[in-house]
Amino acid sequence: MNDLPSENVQDYPRPPAIEQIGQRLRVVLGGVVIADTTAGLRVLETHHAPTYYFPPQDVMAGVLKAAQGASYCEWKGAARYWTAQAGGEIRPRAAWSFSRPSKPFASLAGYLAFYSEPMDACFVGDQRVSPQPGSFYGGWVTPNLQGRIKGAPGTEFW
């Protein structure tokens, strides 16, 4: 059952918007629920699947270790990466966060987002997500999304 309202990614704003999400969010790695929240945030941007962020207190202690490298988002600022480890599994650079995001995204400070592809499973409500196409973006694709999602070959420079 799809408990999420229908949304078209082409209707999402640019610049992106941040909002609270009412659904439960979960991340599973190595058979262990490493993140579970009902207080998550999501970022919506035109042609992107939503990116979901967990408050740090809703991520299991000790499962994330700082990873090498960083990146820069034109909207949110400098991101740092995290390696996830649980249930005997290790996933390098599987999560990211913004320590000091830009002012419009200040509420993301310290929150953590996870790539869904390297995890056992990620959920929005009862819906298991698929990764946003491509190797760079971290959006979570749910069955309620319509429209063309950026990330597949030929969409890199939209």
Rank of each mutant, 00 (worst) to 15 (best):
L25M: 14
S135H: 13
R128A: 15
W82V: 06
Y137D: 13
V43D: 07
G30Q: 09
L41I: 03
D36I: 06
I21T: 15
V63E: 01
T51L: 14
F123K: 05
R93G: 00
I90P: 00
P101M: 07
I21P: 01
M1Q: 04
F98C: 05
K65T: 15
P118M: 02
Q23V: 13
A78F: 10
G139W: 00
V124T: 06
W158E: 12
G77V: 04
F136P: 00
G69N: 06
R93K: 14
G22R: 14
A109T: 06
D11F: 11
G88W: 02
C73W: 05
A106H: 08
R91L: 04
G147P: 08
P56M: 10
A17Q: 12
G147Q: 09
P92T: 04
H48F: 11
I21L: 14
D11Q: 15
W140P: 02
T83A: 06
G110H: 05
A17H: 12
R14G: 13
W82H: 11
E74F: 03
Y81I: 00
R91K: 13
K103T: 12
L41M: 11
P118D: 02
C73T: 05
R100Y: 03
D3F: 00
G77A: 03
T38G: 14
N2L: 07
W75L: 11
T37S: 15
L29C: 11
K150V: 09
S107R: 15
W140S: 02
A152D: 10
P92S: 00
G77E: 10
L64I: 07
R24C: 13
C73Y: 07
A35H: 03
T46K: 15
Q127D: 12
L4R: 10
F105P: 01
Q127N: 15
V59P: 10
V27K: 10
R14Q: 14
L108P: 00
L44Y: 02
D120I: 09
A79W: 01
P55H: 08
K76A: 04
P16K: 10
F105W: 05
E45M: 07
R80D: 13
A94Y: 01
F157P: 00
V32P: 06
R148W: 03
G77R: 03
R42M: 12
M119G: 08
T142H: 02
F105N: 05
T83H: 01
G151L: 03
Q85K: 06
A113C: 12
A67I: 04
V9I: 11
W96P: 01
S130N: 10
R91G: 00
P104M: 07
Q146W: 02
S116P: 13
E89S: 07
G134M: 05
G138F: 07
G139A: 03
R24W: 11
T38N: 12
L25V: 10
V129M: 04
A67W: 01
Q85W: 00
A61P: 01
S135Q: 11
V59H: 06
L44K: 13
L29G: 09
Q146E: 13
G40E: 09
T83Q: 05
Y137P: 03
A113F: 03
Q57T: 14
A106E: 14
E19I: 10
K150D: 08
A113V: 06
A121F: 07
A61C: 01
L4Q: 11
V33I: 15
Q127I: 07
A61L: 12
N144T: 04
P143K: 02
S99N: 13
G69W: 09
G40P: 12
G147L: 07
W82P: 00
L29D: 08
